[in-house]
Write a protein that binds this DNA or RNA. Structure first.
Lengths: 370, 370
DNA sequence: GCTTGTACTTGAAACGCATCAAAGGGGCCG
DNA sequence: CGGCCCCTTTGATGCGTTTCAAGTACAAGC
């Protein structure tokens, strides 16, 4: 049970301590047979380098930390996936911490990562980054994800306003006369989506628009009850186009409408926002605008790399991705297409899985709506 | 940009190095005013303890590592959630690494965590734990999740066979005469589910059973094509009960059947396995058996704590959770209940969200099928 | 006033490793 | 045979902490 250290390996292999260290970090400096001998000894003894000592002596870890507000949100996972792949590409490890919707924990893990001498840290902050001024002083590169920071610093954010605009334009294109937006704009992201919708609709004063609050958590159940409420109205007071600020909300609305005998999309069209794969793995696919989470994660790491390579981050930098947001094109439920198309979301689902491995696929999808 | 270290704090506060260290680790040993002075200096200077040095000197980190095969699998997230909460309860941090379905990476992160002197490490291995013998020698407590290890060691696994049995018994109770199992038993877990189904059906030789391979990845698209194939058969050759080895598969099957004009559940009932929240956030809810992922994560940490407290893990120990697996009780799509019930899965969805914070909720759900 | 005790504080040693200047060994040329 | 250079290996040094034996200051008791 006693941990075997580098000196044990050295003694056992009959070489010096520094040689073993070289075998680990600069194998090219060793004579092949020496290297082989040492490697054999290492695996025979089950030696495992102490990362802490390694970091302490060497100065860096070649690994990034990522603090996420929750793990069960598909969008965060896309970010994680993009960040992971990009990090690996540069030879870095990615460690993920779950802040569990708790600011204290978020802060805790952030400090933890900083203290671990991570090469860089990323956060998808759950609130506006008030702590930013303090954190910005830290000697570790940091990048904020999915949030628009007013403070100086690096961030990568999706253009949520554009997402709202896109959905609104879709509605207009489909000839909507009365649009109902469902959901509570509890986060900046959702607020921006609503803003985008309003902006797009400003040019069309003849289109009626209403926003219905769905309760604090924007759950499918909230969507369902709003859907039921809509269904209960006299036919001429019902919207002909419903936008869920969230896919989950939209999915709830659809269920309610169908339940109450209103056909989707024939009588009322429904669209969502999020590009939540789960929302289209249901039997009724959903039109949705997908913020490019994978891209955000990827760009985040790239920003980190940039800071690392330039040593001193001279200036702040912001990236905004997805202005031409990628809508899932399988709009079966809300489009007037035939049943055959129902299979398409599954094909897309595949495509999106590949996308998590190949940025190209994402790019292609991104173009689809341009 | 220069990192401020403990000696800087000491000098600035006019105390010795050891005193600052005490302020951090044993505040009760300091005079209140000294403590206050030091704390002020710390925040004024923006001092952040170097975790590596800390670990190296102190010996331990009070944090656990969790290696997951993928992040986008709901089940893994339940595990992570359960592990996280239990770890925090004991005052430990939880760091998550994504092996991205790659054995090399899995191994890499495992070693990384070991080398970081984590207090304990958990893995949800993607294959049978061949590496186990080597890893078992490591001086760090390790627990395997969601897998049945034949080697000595600690593991927590769901009873997948019981899950299959439960689904089969459900089918029997619904009067099934011809059961079709859809999916490829690519993993041990799925194999055990099939085994459970066969065992339960052994007592009912009059019930016809067939297993259809759905392609390597068990995607919704695979489910869809099998569903289409089933729908294409003469009516008397169709099953009256379909079991998807995975919720995603089942969801694909339902789509195909409905598409081809076969009503679910009136003509064919469909059930899944996984308890994948995504599968019931679709418009058509799904009957499913849910392996208690949250519980697995929780127990995993408990096993880790046990090893830590007993210092020397004298014997191996296995926990099997979910023999009385918790099925999602909202069986609307495959049950003969009225449309009103459609809303129920959403309520359940809420319950399950809470469950990730309160073990009690899980326990209640667990009882639902007993 | 001296001793004993209490409550804090000090600083040197060690944690396991990477680094790097210096030493060692061998081949080659003169 | 000696000198030089290059390739490989060596081992002392320091990374930022924690720990702990030793020290200091002060109060109480005699």
């Amino acid at each position: 049970m006693a941990k075997v250290k580098i000196s044990d390996v050295a003694r056992e292999a009959g070489v010096s301590l520094g040689t073993v260290s070289n075998a680990l970090n600069h194998p090219e400096k060793l004579r092949p047979e020496t290297l082989k001998l040492i490697n054999e000894t290492i695996s025979r003894l089950g030696y495992l380098p102490n990362q802490s000592a390694r970091q302490l002596a060497g100065g860096t870890t070649k690994s990034f930390g990522l603090v996420l507000p929750r793990l069960d949100h598909g969008f965060s996972l896309q970010i994680a996936s993009g960040a992971h792949n990009e990090a690996r590409k540069h030879g870095y490890d990615l460690l993920i911490a779950n802040a569990d919707n708790d600011d204290i924990l978020e802060d805790h893990y952030l400090r933890y990562f900083m203290g671990t001498q991570m090469s860089g840290v990323m956060v998808q902050p759950m609130a506006s980054p008030d702590w930013h001024p303090a954190m910005a002083k830290m000697p570790v590169p940091i990048v904020h994800l999915d949030i628009h920071c007013s403070e100086p610093g690096y961030y990568v954010a999706a253009d949520n306003e554009a997402q709202g605009r896109i959905i609104a334009e879709l509605a207009i294109a489909r000839g909507a006369r009365h649009i109902t937006v469902v959901g509570r704009a509890a986060f900046m992201q959702l607020t921006l989506r609503v803003l985008g919708i309003h902006k797009a609709l400003a040019l069309h004063p003849d289109i009626k628009i209403e926003v219905i609050d769905a309760g604090e958590w924007n759950t499918a159940a909230d969507g369902y009850s709003i859907g039921a409420q809509i269904a209960g109205r006299p036919a001429d007071e019902r919207p002909d186009f419903v936008v869920g600020l969230t896919d989950v909300l939209a999915s709830g609305v659809i269920s309610a409408l169908v339940d109450k005998g209103i056909s989707v999309p024939e009588q009322i069209r429904v669209a969502g926002c999020d590009g939540n794969p789960l929302a289209w793995s249901g039997s009724v696919p959903l039109t949705t605008v997908a913020p490019p989470g994978y891209e955000i994660g990827r760009k985040g790491v790239q920003l980190l790399m940039e800071q690392i390579e330039n040593k001193v981050p001279t200036k702040t930098k912001h990236i905004r991705v997805g202005s031409a947001a990628r809508p899932v094109t399988a709009v079966t439920a809300t489009e007037d297409i035939n049943r055959q198309e129902l299979v398409r979301p599954f094909l897309l689902e595949r495509a999106s899985t590949q996308a998590s491995n190949h940025a190209e696929a994402t790019a292609i999808n991104l173009g689809a709506y341009l």
